[in-house]
Simulated assay, not measured.
Amino acid sequence: MAIKVESHRCPQNHPCPVVRVCPAGAITQRGFAAPEINTSRCIDCGICTRYCGYGAIRKV
């Protein structure tokens, strides 16, 4: 499975806390934009999907 960011669910008004919980460093954020997933670094652990309080990050 892959991890996807649904930007319409992300408030995009703060530093995303999910960036710091990714053990692989696969999540980045530019300014306050929706985070981006680097699929080549993602280990598909799902921590980000559980940590995002807005449900903006999910497995597809």
Rank of each mutant, 00 (worst) to 15 (best):
M1L: 13
M1T: 11
M1I: 10
M1G: 14
M1P: 11
A2N: 14
A2G: 05
A2F: 10
A2L: 13
V5A: 02
V5D: 00
E6M: 07
E6V: 11
E6A: 05
E6R: 09
H8L: 08
H8A: 11
H8D: 14
H8R: 09
H8C: 04
H8V: 08
H8T: 11
H8N: 13
R9Y: 11
R9G: 00
R9K: 15
R9P: 02
C10K: 00
C10S: 05
C10W: 01
C10I: 02
P11D: 06
P11A: 06
Q12C: 04
Q12F: 00
N13Y: 03
N13K: 10
N13D: 15
H14M: 13
H14S: 09
P15Y: 03
P15G: 04
P15K: 07
C16I: 00
C16Q: 01
C16S: 02
P17R: 02
P17H: 09
V18E: 03
V18L: 04
V18S: 01
V18Y: 03
V19R: 03
V19P: 04
V19N: 06
R20S: 14
V21A: 04
C22H: 04
P23V: 09
P23W: 10
G25H: 11
I27G: 04
T28V: 14
T28A: 14
Q29H: 08
Q29W: 07
Q29Y: 10
R30V: 12
R30Y: 09
G31P: 11
G31Y: 08
G31E: 08
G31H: 07
G31N: 09
G31R: 10
G31A: 07
F32K: 11
F32L: 07
A34D: 00
A34V: 00
A34P: 01
A34C: 05
A34W: 00
P35I: 00
P35E: 01
P35G: 03
P35N: 05
P35Q: 01
E36T: 14
E36C: 03
N38W: 01
N38G: 05
T39A: 15
T39K: 13
T39F: 13
S40N: 12
R41E: 12
C42R: 01
I43Q: 12
I43K: 15
I43Y: 06
D44V: 11
C45N: 08
C45D: 13
C45H: 07
G46L: 14
G46F: 07
G46K: 15
I47S: 02
I47K: 08
I47Y: 05
C48I: 06
C48S: 07
T49D: 02
T49Y: 03
Y51W: 15
C52H: 07
C52G: 07
C52D: 09
G53R: 12
G53C: 09
Y54W: 15
Y54M: 06
Y54A: 06
G55D: 12
G55Q: 10
A56L: 06
A56W: 01
A56V: 06
A56P: 04
A56T: 04
I57E: 01
I57M: 09
R58I: 12
R58E: 14
R58M: 11
K59H: 14
K59L: 15
K59Q: 13
K59P: 01
K59I: 14
K59A: 09
V60E: 12
V60N: 09
V60H: 05
V60W: 04
